[in-house]
């Protein structure tokens, strides 16, 4: 009976790829964001962060 819970995914061809894929995608997006942030120039960052303060109300 336990196999209803445990192993029924084994019947899909290549199911191992799913978790691997998810990690790969996640890390590449994360890496991209990280690289950008590290390389972004300071003046642009300052300019962006001051946008909300750019009007009185």
């Amino acid at each position: 009976m336990l196999k209803f819970i445990k192993h029924h995914l084994d019947t899909i061809d290549g199911v191992e790829i799913f978790p691997v894929l998810s990690f790969l995608i996640f890390f590449s997006v994360f890496l991209f964001a990280l690289i950008y942030v590290v390389k972004a120039d300071k003046s642009h960052m300052d300019e962006m962060s001051n946008l909300p303060l750019d009007n009185k109300n």
Partner: peptide, 24 residues
């Protein structure tokens, strides 16, 4: 930032925050 009258602590962090959050 608006209520405090000062910009967000780290704009860089907010970018990471955004992408990591919506992704995870």
């Amino acid at each position: 930032p608006k209520a405090a009258g000062r910009p967000v602590f780290s704009y860089r962090l907010s970018i990471i925050h955004f992408w990591a959050l919506i992704f995870i």
